Simulated assay, not measured.
Amino acid sequence: MAALAWLLIPLIAALGAAIWGGWAARNRTTGDVTELAGYARFREAMEKSHSGSEAV
């Protein structure tokens, strides 16, 4: 029985590593799209606020 326990420990560790590796490598591009859209709105707002304030 002890031999079986020693064989299960690396198996459980490998399974946990595989799950963690899959989670760490997941696709997270949706947050970037939202942030880039917010940055574009910020730039547009800044251009609007400066367009009428200076007479160049």
Rank of each mutant, 00 (worst) to 15 (best):
A2E: 13
A3N: 10
A3F: 05
L4V: 14
L4Q: 06
A5C: 06
W6K: 08
W6E: 04
W6R: 12
L7V: 07
L8D: 05
L8F: 06
P10M: 04
L11Q: 07
L11V: 13
L11D: 04
I12M: 13
A14F: 08
A14P: 02
A14D: 04
L15C: 02
L15V: 10
L15D: 01
L15N: 01
G16E: 04
G16H: 01
G16C: 09
A17G: 14
A17F: 11
A17T: 10
A17D: 03
A18S: 13
A18V: 08
A18W: 11
A18R: 07
A18N: 06
I19N: 05
W20K: 02
W20R: 01
G21D: 08
G22R: 12
G22Q: 13
W23N: 12
A24F: 07
A24P: 01
A25P: 00
A25T: 08
A25L: 13
R26A: 15
R26Q: 15
R26I: 08
R26G: 09
N27G: 10
N27Y: 09
R28P: 04
R28I: 08
T29L: 03
T29M: 04
T29F: 06
T29R: 09
T29Y: 03
T30V: 07
T30F: 07
T30H: 11
G31V: 01
G31K: 03
G31Y: 00
G31I: 00
D32T: 09
V33P: 01
V33E: 11
V33F: 08
V33G: 00
V33S: 05
T34R: 10
L36E: 09
L36H: 00
L36K: 08
L36G: 02
L36V: 03
L36T: 00
L36W: 04
A37W: 02
A37Y: 04
G38Q: 08
Y39A: 10
Y39Q: 09
Y39W: 07
A40R: 08
A40K: 06
R41S: 10
R41C: 00
F42Y: 02
F42C: 01
R43D: 02
R43S: 02
E44K: 02
E44T: 05
E44W: 03
A45F: 04
M46L: 15
E47Q: 06
K48S: 12
K48A: 14
K48W: 06
K48E: 15
S49V: 10
S49L: 11
S49P: 00
H50W: 14
H50E: 15
H50D: 13
H50K: 10
G52N: 14
G52M: 12
G52Q: 13
S53Q: 15
S53I: 15
S53P: 03
E54G: 13
E54L: 15
E54A: 14
E54C: 12
E54K: 14
E54R: 15
A55L: 13
